[in-house]
């Protein structure tokens, strides 16, 4: 009897040597461990044996079966591993995914930084009136200071109190509404679409996006304005970003400034080739700001003797172009998938 087990084992080992491939391994499994396998016949013989022999024979059988299973299992695994390890340099399968527009995510990145400082977000409508868009902001009528703020006017009946309707040319009117409806202290940022009759080219568009902000309290000062914007620049551009404040003029702020950020590409260090970002100036103009003109505060029923504040504004497209090295503003509105796909943020 032991002999027949030996014969079976030898036959199995011989088969094993010849077997190669998953199919063969599977064949071995059917032949030696399947329902019709010889070993099962041996097992079924056990009850016919002498009771004293049954135990030992059964054990022998079990050992043989385990041995065969282990070998077959190993063979099967080897085969599978071999197949799987063929060539892992084939490309992965690209999952279909969605994304938000780079203008949206850049707007939010900007807002997030200011929100951490304590600002809250206020978004107003895009259809505005002359009073909120100009008058309340201390723009004299028929003055060259309006030239930089050319505006689309709308075919709506003009408001008796607030004048002609127009498309806001900056998000400031939304801020005027907040100032008129609330009491200081307040710190608000307003992101959104704005419109100006500019011919479309690589850096201009008749529709673009802005984020403007202001803070008013009894003790907000010019140094705070510098601090808030420096903190923003470090968060948005680079940890070691520096800012340069140049005196400028806006009707709605006094003192006013234009702000340049140190070039994050060359950091002002001259190289052999001209810096593509700052054109070797070392500085890039990024935003306008200033202390809110007392006329603006008084117009919004905020006592300019008691309160003071600062305001700033920046263009989202410009920020996105600088941050990602985008050279044509039209790419933002063309919505080419090859553009959108490069900004896979949620």
């Amino acid at each position: 009897m032991e002999n027949e087990l030996k014969i079976l084992e030898e036959e199995f080992l011989k088969d094993c040597q010849q077997a190669c491939g998953a199919k063969d391994a599977e064949g071995l499994r059917v032949k030696y461990l399947g329902r019709k396998a010889q070993i099962n016949q041996f097992f079924s013989k056990i009850p016919t044996l002498e009771p004293t022999q049954r135990g030992a024979y059964g054990r022998e059988l079990n050992i043989l079966k385990q041995k065969m299973s282990a070998i077959i299992e190993k063979k099967l695994n080897e085969r599978q591993n071999l197949e799987e390890s063929l060539d892992l340099t084939y490309p992965g399968i690209k999952p279909q995914r969605g994304s938000r527009h780079v203008l949206t995510t850049v707007t939010e990145t900007i807002c997030d930084i200011f929100q951490k400082q304590g600002f809250i977000v206020a978004q107003g409508g895009e259809i505005e009136d002359e009073w909120h868009n100009f008058t309340a902001l201390n723009f004299p009528t028929d003055h060259p200071s309006r030239d930089a703020f050319d505006t689309f006017y709308l075919n709506l009946d003009q408001d008796k109190k607030n004048g002609r309707y127009l498309l806001r040319c900056h998000t400031s009117p939304s801020q005027i509404r907040v100032m008129c409806q609330n009491k200081p202290p307040m710190a608000v940022i307003s992101p959104g679409r704005v419109y100006r009759p500019d011919e479309v080219d690589a850096t201009h568009s008749f529709m673009f996006h802005q984020v403007e902000g202001f803070a008013i309290s009894e003790n907000i000062n010019f140094a705070h304005l510098k601090g808030v914007l420096l903190d923003f620049a470090k968060g948005f551009f680079a940890k070691d970003a520096r800012l340069r404040f140049r005196p400028h003029f806006f009707p709605f702020t006094e003192p006013s400034a234009e702000v340049d950020v140190s070039c994050f590409m060359c950091n002002g260090k001259k190289k052999e080739t001209k810096c593509s970002v700052c054109k070797d100036k070392g500085w890039i103009e990024v935003l306008g700001c200033g202390m809110i003109h007392p006329n603006v505060l008084d117009t919004c029923n905020i006592d300019s003797q008691k309160y003071q504040g600062f305001a700033f504004g920046l263009g989202v497209e410009r920020m996105a172009m600088l941050k990602y090295g985008i050279t044509d503003i039209r790419l933002f509105y063309e919505n080419d998938l090859r553009f959108l796909e490069q900004f896979n943020q949620l």
Partner: peptide, 21 residues
Amino acid sequence: IQPKLPFLLDQREKDGSGLVV
């Protein structure tokens, strides 16, 4: 002029109602 960070109030808590924005 040395930059300073202002201490801004948490405006959502102001008067329990916050700003109307």
